[in-house]
């Protein structure tokens, strides 16, 4: 298979398959969660659940005080690669064109060289957290295959994107095809792995506050 054929497949059937799996998977998980629901709480409400929910949704996304000191690498690496990943994904001109074609929305891009730097920093951060996971005995003990799969699925789009941008390893067309494929792999794996937290993080953060809020406790 030539690079162009691969790219044509990735931009055509490959993308369709990945998108269908992604949508079906995410829909199943959300609807299942919603249908199973929480067991009813019969106690009298002593505060607003919603207010508490919204508050933690916000506060739990901010750095936890002391975390930087306790686990600097996890803390920094985690923030850097999450933010870097989303900046490169959402603000690189070609990505915006993709999203525009899919969603109809578009927004201004960041200059390519800035994306380049951010991408590289994100790659470095991901490597750092992996090394940490492998060398720290506790983290290593706690890690399952799914954790490594999730790491790889996040790492590959960044790496192939960087290679493609700099014309490294193989010709641009093939690397671009691999980049698109790695993104499709990520799409497929989101509903199947803990990468589902892309969406559920908001739900769980909301509940943390909502449960406490209903009891009239601020967290």
């Amino acid at each position: 298979m030539t690079g162009v054929e691969l790219l044509n497949w990735a931009r055509g059937p490959g993308l369709q398959i990945a998108l269908v799996v992604f949508i079906v998977g995410v829909a199943i998980r959300f609807i299942e969660m919603w249908l199973l629901g929480k067991s009813p709480d019969f106690a009298e409400a002593r505060g607003s659940a919603a207010a508490g929910g919204w508050r933690t949704l916000f506060t739990r996304s901010l750095p936890m005080p002391g975390a930087l000191k306790r686990a600097p690498l996890v803390f920094l690496g985690g923030y850097v690669f999450h933010i870097g990943f989303f900046i490169t994904f959402l603000f690189y001109a070609p990505h915006i064109l993709f999203l525009r074609a899919v969603t109809g929305f578009s927004w201004p891009a960041l200059p390519a060289y800035l994306i380049d730097v951010i991408g590289l920093v994100s790659i470095a951060a991901l490597v750092a957290v992996l090394v940490h996971r492998l060398t720290d005995p506790v983290r290593r003990f706690l890690s399952r295959t799914g954790d490594y799969v999730a790491w790889a699925a996040t790492f590959l789009p960044l790496l192939t994107g960087y290679f493609a941008y700099h014309r490294l390893v193989t010709d641009y067309t093939t690397m671009l095809a691999l980049h698109v494929l790695s993104f499709e792999l990520l799409l497929v794996l989101i509903p199947l792995t803990k990468l589902m937290h892309t969406f559920t993080f908001a739900v769980s953060r909301w509940y943390n506050g909502a449960i406490a809020g209903r009891k009239g406790v601020k967290v």
């Binding site: 998108l19 949508i23 829909a27 609807i31 070609p94 064109l97 525009r100 074609a101 899919v102």
Partner: peptide
């Protein structure tokens, strides 16, 4: 970067299937 073929049909079907399966 645009997909080679429109995705809306596939996406629509996927939503329907996803809701039903969910």
């Amino acid at each position: 970067p645009a997909p080679r073929a429109p995705l809306s049909a596939a996406a629509g079907a996927a939503i329907a299937v996803g809701v039903a399966a969910g």
